[in-house]
């Protein structure tokens, strides 16, 4: 279990640094509350993962399926919403910015 935990830790460290660098590159640095929202979403993602695989391990296949579908739907919808809100530049603004160049 410790091995899996520090593999997960390594992955998180890499992913966080990638997000930080990528957002900086695009000039869309995240402020403190946006980081908070991203962290909350990541926790939701982990909760979904934990729920599905714990349920499978406990032979609760119906819980894994139903709960998994429910939580995955929430995770995907909220993830798309956060992505669009934080990282997507509206077309009008791209055109506007381009015209000013």
């Amino acid at each position: 279990m410790s091995l899996y935990s520090f593999i997960a830790g390594m992955g998180i460290a890499v992913a966080v640094y990638w997000l930080y660098s990528w957002s900086k590159q695009r000039g869309q640095s995240l402020n403190w509350w946006k980081w908070l929202v991203v962290c909350a979403w990541v926790l939701l993602l982990f909760l979904t993962d934990i729920f599905i695989f714990t349920s499978l391990g406990e032979n609760e296949s119906r819980a894994a399926l139903m709960g998994g579908v429910f939580l995955t739907a929430i995770t995907v919808i909220s993830g798309v919403g956060i992505w669009r809100w934080f990282f997507t530049v509206p077309k009008a603004k791209i055109i506007d910015n381009a015209s000013k160049m």
Partner: peptide, 13 residues
């Protein structure tokens, strides 16, 4: 970053 995280994880573990 990954290496530091790995060393830290190994230490804690």
């Amino acid at each position: 970053a990954g290496g530091v995280a790995a060393l830290g994880g190994i230490a804690a573990s």
